[in-house]
Design a protein around this nucleic acid. Structure first.
Lengths: 150, 150
DNA sequence: ATTTACTTGAAAATAGTTTTAAGTTATACT
DNA sequence: AGTATAACTTAAAACTATTTTCAAGTAAAT
């Protein structure tokens, strides 16, 4: 469980588990299918009457990223979003340029590339594969719109 | 040539080619191997005695991205960087977590994925593949450091 | 029990980017 | 050519996300 893992990780590194840190991590656990930004986390805590200061939210998120609990994402909006960094879970995204929806995509075809880079001496630690395009839903709508124009 | 293409593009869409727009695009052409941020562009122009206001630099970059002349990149630094969006040129990057150097990487193995997504109805417009890890240079240094410790 | 180091919150600072308001320039129209 | 119109630029101010500062609080270690 994430909370326990965080406690252990903190203890090992002479940091402390605090109510605030637990609350922030819990927000990500409770919303694991979203891609929350720091302000989202602050707002969620605030509306749940758990007041954690912004500074602490930001600091805790940074700490969780450093410890590998969260993965930092950027969808070109000018803010960072984060997701729980489940092990062995790839984190590729398809961002629809029309509706903005973010789809999680699976990727099984990177092994060849990975091996190639490793042969060249690169150490493959983390990767982030973003595809921008039009999702099936919007694609249908666009087609309809074009047909209506005819 | 980019400048001519931009002129045409602007004219088609009832925009105007201005000295400022030409200057900004030229900065990217003259530095095509770098990944410049908006502030870099401003600084380069400023030091070349071509004063273009920051607002115009930012606006022009946005316009160039919209028109497909530039590609917006993010390396998790809190700023956006841009590169000339050459057609048929992939833009995958390997960012060394140690030295921060950005390597361009070639990728020829995405066709299977692309086809898969297209079968599902996704329209593949642009993608951005980022790999974080340790580059061969740093890898060597790290190995040495570890050996020295023994 | 006291020291030490870590943590928090509120406010201020910072950095990148966007907006505003006023003036300038190019294009279209007569 | 002269004028109207719309696009464009500038400098400064505003804005937004994020980070830093610093005083005060809290837990762990001695």
């Amino acid at each position: 469980m994430y909370i326990e893992a965080l406690k252990k990780e903190l203890k090992d590194k002479k940091y402390r588990m605090t109510p605030q840190r637990e609350l922030v991590l819990k927000v990500f656990i409770d919303n694991e299918n979203d891609h929350l930004g720091a302000e989202d986390v602050y707002r969620i805590l605030f509306s749940n009457k758990h007041s954690v200061s912004k500074a602490t939210v930001y600091r805790t998120i940074e700490l969780l990223v450093d410890f590998g609990f969260l993965r930092k994402l950027d969808f070109g909006e000018g803010i960072y979003r984060y997701e729980l960094a489940k092990k062995n879970k790839m984190h590729h995204h398809f961002i629809c340029k029309i509706c903005g929806k973010i789809y999680e995509i699976e990727e099984k075809h990177l092994d060849i590339l990975k091996k190639e880079l490793e042969n060249q001496g690169f150490v493959f630690e983390d990767f982030d594969f973003k595809i921008y395009g039009i999702c099936p839903k919007c694609n249908k709508k666009t087609k309809k719109r074009i047909e209506n124009k005819k």
